[in-house]
């Protein structure tokens, strides 16, 4: 500690700042390379011309767009465009349902007072402690018993069914909105329904965006529940499971580079969404997840 102070005396302040700035930027650059490296590799693989799952070198020897073209043209076995549409449909509907239900639930737990409030919150907390796919087989048979197995509706239901369980962060956010605002509106004769839609919602952009974002992404990345529900019905697969199928023992040799191409294609929209919505995402999760 003492040495540092001594140093200060004879080193001009600006030089020291400069040094630390260069160090900081250098360190960030190294970290960025480490973080972007696998992604760069993914992109390179997706343009690789040589076949096979596995090469010992990093940079492809031949470059090609074939992997992308094949995704959209050779659809008799792996119907990527169809999977993409399936996922999009499921994502849109489950995102709509989840967002509305999550926000309503959180609003109820944050603002409304009723006898079952505390017990319900506790029950949800307890439910959340069980490993999620412990019950996947039961879910499949429930869906099957109402004739919904192997359908997109089933997927929408499964992805939306967790809406209530995810109340925690949005409730945290609503808790930060002063209660006096809605009390004033209630005195003016508004119903609680109106308060929610016309007063709370407009003030909650970050958490709305956060909920939309997380629920929209879920169907793009889950492959466990889809495989339990869709089983052998390839036409109803989502991109995540479809791409995952390309990596099975029989397929990997032939389809690995196509897998990379498909992965790049689904990563692009999600990345753009994330970059665009970053501010709200952070706002939502910090306000909701942590409070002093």
């Amino acid at each position: 500690m003492k040495q540092v102070n001594e140093k200060k005396k004879w080193t001009p302040r600006r030089a020291r700042r400069l040094a630390s700035s260069i160090l900081g930027h250098g360190f960030l650059t190294v970290l960025s390379i480490v973080w972007l490296f696998p992604i760069a590799w993914l992109i390179m693989q997706s343009f690789r011309g040589e076949p096979g799952a596995f090469t010992k070198y990093f940079i492809p020897k031949t470059w090609t767009l074939d992997n992308y073209i094949r995704l959209f043209t050779e659809t008799h076995l792996f119907n990527f465009p169809r999977w993409f549409m399936n996922t999009l449909i499921v994502a849109i509907f489950s995102c709509l349902i989840t967002t509305i239900l999550t926000l309503l639930t959180s609003y109820a737990f944050s603002r409304l007072r009723f006898k079952a409030r505390k017990p319900m919150m506790n029950v949800i907390l307890i439910l959340g402690l069980f490993p999620g796919f412990m019950s996947m087989i039961a879910i499949y048979h429930i869906l099957k018993s109402v004739g919904l197995d192997q359908s997109l509706v089933a997927l929408v239901l499964v992805y939306s069914s967790g809406a209530m369980m995810g109340y925690y962060i949005a409730k945290g956010f609503f808790d930060t909105i002063p209660k006096s605002i809605d009390e004033a509106a209630l005195i003016d004769g508004a119903t609680k329904n109106q308060v929610f839609w016309h007063i709370i919602m407009p003030m909650s952009k970050p958490i709305v965006v956060y909920t939309i974002l997380t629920s929209f992404i879920a169907p793009w990345v889950d492959f466990i529940f889809v495989s339990v529900i869709m089983k052998d019905n390839y036409n109803m697969y989502t991109v995540a499971l479809g791409l995952y199928q390309m990596l099975t023992r029989e397929n990997i040799q032939q389809y690995f580079t196509e897998f990379c191409a498909g992965a790049v294609l689904i990563a692009i929209p999600i990345t753009l969404l994330f970059i665009k919505m970053q501010k709200y995402y952070v706002g939502g999760v910090t306000a909701g997840g942590a409070k002093g």
Partner: peptide
């Protein structure tokens, strides 16, 4: 730059 890695689905990045 760091956010991009969040956006790549885990089943892709981890399998790679």
């Amino acid at each position: 730059i760091f956010v991009i890695t969040i956006a790549v689905p885990q089943f892709v990045s981890l399998l790679l």
